[in-house]
Design a protein around this nucleic acid. Sequence first.
DNA 1: TTAACATTTAACCTAATTGTTAATTGAAAT
DNA 2: ATTTCAATTAACAATTAGGTTAAATGTTAA
Lengths: 94, 94
Amino acid sequence: MGLQQTLKALADPIRREILNMLKTGRMSAGEITEHFPVTAASISRHLSVLKDADLIRDAREGKYIFYEINTSVLEETLLWISDLKGADDHAEKQ
Amino acid sequence: MGLQQTLKALADPIRREILNMLKTGRMSAGEITEHFPVTAASISRHLSVLKDADLIRDAREGKYIFYEINTSVLEETLLWISDLKGADDHAEKQ
DNA sequence: TTAACATTTAACCTAATTGTTAATTGAAAT
DNA sequence: ATTTCAATTAACAATTAGGTTAAATGTTAA
């Protein structure tokens, strides 16, 4: 897990778009589903991949389940890629 | 292509390790293969995935084919992830 | 407590990925 | 020219991934 799970989760366009949507704020599974031409079941599994990678967190509220992005795990990925790029452009932020 | 191809290429541990190895310098397909417990044919296909993503370049020299890393395509990925992370930690390098 | 709604999980299908072995290509050496 | 070596490509098997519909779970409202 870790880097592997993160990169696998990011390697799908629907999952990346979900993360992009969540950048603006939390959304319910239903709201997320509306944006895609696939079934709720399909989106639900994408959400579970993102959740297993800890890229999103969920919170049930009544009959809705809200999802929010968790960017902390991206730090490792960013460092790994930066390091590959020549070890001359990381550690610029805390 | 672009981001999608890059992330797909990075989402495999063998391919990431190949890139890591090439960070230190160019290597022939055979030298790369020696580091992994899989066949040369298998590594060859990993190399072609990396090449299609433009993450590596190849150059034949006699009976050897040497591979070298090309990090330029990583910039797009780095920007995408940084942007996801809150748009507060990119554009630090040129 | 039953009905309705939101979401997930199960079962299934197809397509893509990864690995293997065998055959092919390209270059060098005998 | 033929053998040898490096590497790729082809053909195939096994696994993983992503989609669908149908059933199950959890919650709210009647």
